[in-house]
Computed example of a mutant assay.
Amino acid sequence: MKSNHINYDYLKSFDRIDKIIDGSDNSFEEVDSIPLRDKLSYNNGFYVNCSAIFVDIRKSSQLTNVHLRPKLAKLYRVFISEVVATMNGNALCAEINIIGDCVSGIFNTPYRQNIDGVLSTAAQIASLIDVINCKFSKKGIEQIEVGIGISYGRALMIKAGYNGSGINDIVWVGDVVNESSKLCDASDDNQIVVSKTFYDNLNDENQELFKYDYFEKVYYNKIHDVDMNNWYKENCKQENSWF
């Protein structure tokens, strides 16, 4: 959000700090599903079980050595816009955040079958990257490799920002967010890496898609959307493709 200039008053700042610290601990509720944004204030919060997907470009710092800014801008715009579109296409998606070359999504998963729906979105993203690379190669743009991490667990949903300025955002705090970020870091070559808890809640058919890493204690594999993969096979004739 764009800055809204207000002269900084350190005495008012110190007063705000005290009010936040002295706020009631009983204003943070346990809920079954992610509530609407308008239920949040600067004084409350909600504990909720949810799923998180993190997607980022591997070795992105090296891209600046390959491309000048026009192509680099196109690369990032394509990646971010279409990963956001994919996550947003899942009705369970509650929040999407963009931080640099990372796109993350928080998904409302109160029921076990919802977990499989989140995996389907991740599979679409993996297939999307194949198609993006196909189109990049035809335009002389460097192909990208991404990491995809997914976790399920408990998070605290709060509204944070500068009260009265109009500058605020929803912040998700908890192991589910941290874990999915770490799983994303552990992923490469467009693989999907999921936590044990996320894996345990998948149906049997989807569990069979994964391999287990005994060292990292995570489940991983290349998993793709069937329809998108068929389009890729028909329209992208590339050597050394994964199929």
Rank of each mutant, 00 (worst) to 15 (best):
N88W: 11
N229T: 12
S24R: 10
A186Q: 15
G100Y: 00
N26S: 14
N44R: 02
N230L: 12
F210Q: 04
S241W: 06
V84S: 12
S33L: 10
F46R: 03
N114Q: 09
V194Q: 11
I192Q: 02
V84C: 14
I57W: 01
Y232F: 15
S13T: 14
K182C: 10
E239P: 02
N97I: 10
V226I: 08
C184W: 01
G140Y: 03
K74G: 00
V171S: 09
P70T: 01
E30N: 14
F28A: 08
V226C: 00
L63G: 09
Y212R: 06
I17T: 10
Y232V: 08
N190Y: 04
Y152N: 08
V84N: 02
N44H: 09
G89M: 05
L75V: 07
F215Y: 14
N114G: 03
N43W: 10
S60Q: 02
F136Y: 15
D185L: 02
A160I: 04
Y162L: 14
D32R: 13
K233V: 04
S41I: 06
G174A: 08
L92K: 15
D227I: 11
E216G: 10
G100F: 07
F54T: 05
F28W: 01
V131R: 14
D56F: 00
G153R: 06
V218C: 13
V177S: 03
M228A: 11
S27F: 11
P70V: 02
K39P: 00
E216R: 15
N133G: 00
G164M: 06
A94P: 00
P110C: 09
H67Y: 10
A73V: 13
D169E: 10
N221D: 13
T197N: 12
N4Q: 14
E82Q: 11
R77G: 14
V171D: 02
P35Q: 10
K211C: 05
I150W: 02
Q62H: 10
N190R: 07
E179I: 13
L68N: 11
Y42N: 07
D38C: 00
I96S: 04
N4G: 10
V48H: 08
D25V: 14
N221L: 01
V176A: 09
P70I: 00
K182R: 15
F14N: 15
Y162V: 15
I6N: 11
W231N: 12
R58Q: 11
L128E: 08
D189K: 13
F14A: 15
G140D: 03
Y199V: 05
G105L: 05
Q124K: 12
